[in-house]
């Protein structure tokens, strides 16, 4: 895979969450590699890039990721492992036992290839915590990121993976 020299999201790269290669960088590497992604997959990958760059619509991000994973993971396993690791650290499920209940944050496990299966897994995880899910509501959200001054180690992470 071709190496992209500049880290495209260096300003937002937080090591605790980034697992050494942030998602934008992985997507950029895929896009920059001749023949790695073609046709509709390229369009979908660009959509995914836009979604993770904006970090506003977690559900759509997850939906597009699952679609991309079904299409491309066999060919680009390592890239999708990095993307999975990144999403696992950046996404949360907020589960309410009923519409009026306070939300409980549940980690998102990406052992599945469709959003509905991920949603069901999160609801099961909430139930295992002792919640009685009367009329549950679930929203996927991006974990808030500390965008304060970057540490030396954060800079090192991006530099070392460049």
């Amino acid at each position: 895979m071709a190496e992209v020299k500049a880290c495209s999201c260096a300003a937002d790269c937080i090591p605790e969450f980034c697992d050494w290669k942030c998602a934008l960088r992985v997507v950029d590497e895929l896009l920059a590699t001749p023949g790695a992604v073609t046709g509709d997959d390229t369009d979908l990958l660009l959509d995914f890039r836009s979604l993770i760059r904006q970090q506003k619509n977690a559900e759509a991000t997850l939906r597009v990721f699952c679609e991309l994973r079904r299409r491309l993971e066999v060919k680009h396993y390592l890239a999708f492992y990095r993307l999975r690791s990144w999403l696992k650290n950046h996404l949360l499920a907020e589960v309410r036992a009923c519409p009026a209940a306070a939300p409980e944050q549940i980690p998102v496990r990406l052992n599945f290839y469709c959003v509905e299966a991920v949603r069901r897994d999160c609801l099961c995880a909430a139930a295992e915590r002792g919640n009685v899910l009367l009329a549950p509501r679930l929203n996927f959200v991006f974990r808030p990121i500390n965008k304060g001054p970057r540490t030396l180690s954060a800079a090192t992470v991006c530099a070392s993976s460049a």
Partner: peptide, 21 residues
């Protein structure tokens, strides 16, 4: 099995960054 391999690659990359320093 492929996750073990991928996770080890990521771990090796971290070690290599520190070795380079």
């Amino acid at each position: 099995q492929n996750d073990y391999v991928a996770a080890l690659i990521v771990a090796h990359e971290k070690v290599m960054a520190d070795l380079t320093r």
